[in-house]
């Protein structure tokens, strides 16, 4: 499988803090890969470096095998980037925005762009600034799609939209992507939104990649072990997250689950539980170890 996007030890430092650190990942060609993480985890930083807008402090980022430089031009024709604030020229009409795309891109698909906007009932002669937020996002996405990119980078594409506009935008996006075989890399902090769209998932937290893999693998490789209270973590398995109450202990583990006893249950976690476990792990890594009894310890650092 060739990589549409590959990063190696990628990092970006803002003055003294790292916006992204030690990020090594691979987005296979033809996949729809979701990037989840809390606000400030480094999602936008990663996407901006992939789009050539930002220069890495450490490591490299390549698109279809060639490194991306902010002043390079190789990636520009193949990559479509949708910023989370979807900036547009507010005083231009929608038709003029399409003209911008047509004049600045070599592989421009004007007919599809017009057809798409027509389907969405966005009038071409209206000024961009007079459109609703959802319509502006649609216009921005149209500009990305019509340049027929091989890799589409979408930073929080639906964050500012109401649920209906959200659904419409994602449907429109996925319909077109499926037709063209475009690789999509999109970020979101809403897991439920990504699950139906994506076949790959990357969890980013505290400026580091916590886990990455296909959604099927993630689901198959994790188990939720629920049983009576137990202070000793199970052996031979990687514990991602522990939830303790006075009578019950829940482990989210990676790998083949060990047998802990007859009073233990092994359950299939859903994607959200897995992701949250990794996000929690990311937040607490480097912090003091999780106290055994988080409920009774007033100095608990895990809360």
């Amino acid at each position: 499988m060739t990589a549409a996007l590959e990063t190696l030890g990628l990092g970006r430092r803002y003055h003294t803090t790292w916006g992204l650190r030690d990020c090594t990942l691979l987005v296979p060609e033809g996949t729809v890969t979701g990037l989840v993480g809390p606000n400030g985890a480094g999602k936008s930083t990663l996407l901006r470096m992939a789009a050539g807008l930002s220069r890495p402090t450490a490591g490299t980022v390549s698109v279809f095998g060639s490194p991306v430089h902010p002043n390079g031009t190789d990636h520009l024709g193949r990559v479509g980037y949708l910023d989370q604030f979807h900036p547009l020229y507010r005083y231009f009409s929608v038709a003029e925005m399409l003209a911008v795309g047509r004049k600045l891109n070599s592989r421009w698909d004007d007919a599809s762009a017009r057809k798409w906007l027509e389907d969405l009932a966005i009038p071409l002669d209206k000024r961009v600034g007079r459109l609703s937020g959802g319509q502006q996002a649609q216009v921005a996405l149209t500009l990305c799609m019509a340049k027929r990119p091989d890799l589409l980078l979408l930073d929080e594409p639906v964050a500012s939209l109401d649920p209906l506009a959200r659904k419409r935008l994602l449907q429109a996006l996925m319909g077109t992507v499926a037709d063209r075989g475009t690789t999509v890399f999109l970020s979101s902090h809403i897991i439920s939104e990504l699950e139906p769209l994506c076949n790959y998932l990357i969890v980013l937290s505290a400026s580091r990649v916590q886990t990455a893999g296909s959604i099927d693998d993630l689901l198959a490789n994790h188990r939720l072990l629920v049983g009576p209270r137990r202070d000793q973590p199970p052996d031979g398995v990687e514990v991602i997250d522990v939830t303790q109450t006075s009578r019950q202990t829940t482990y989210l583990v990676r790998g083949v689950a060990p047998t802990l006893g007859s009073d233990w249950q092994s359950l299939q976690p859903d994607l959200e539980e897995i992701v949250i476990a990794y996000l929690t792990k990311g937040e607490t890594d480097g912090a003091p170890p999780i106290p055994v009894d988080a409920d009774s310890d007033p100095k608990g650092g895990a809360a």
Binding site: A51, G52, L53, P70, N71, T73, L76, G77, V79, G80, Y81, D83, F85, P87, L88, Y89, R90, V100, G101, L104, N105, S106, R107, A140, L143, K147
Partner: peptide, 16 residues
């Protein structure tokens, strides 16, 4: 100020 530079720099045209 309007962030439209992000739009411009992701089209198929070099910064120069």
């Amino acid at each position: 100020e309007r962030q439209t530079v992000i739009l411009a720099f992701t089209q198929n045209i070099s910064r120069t």
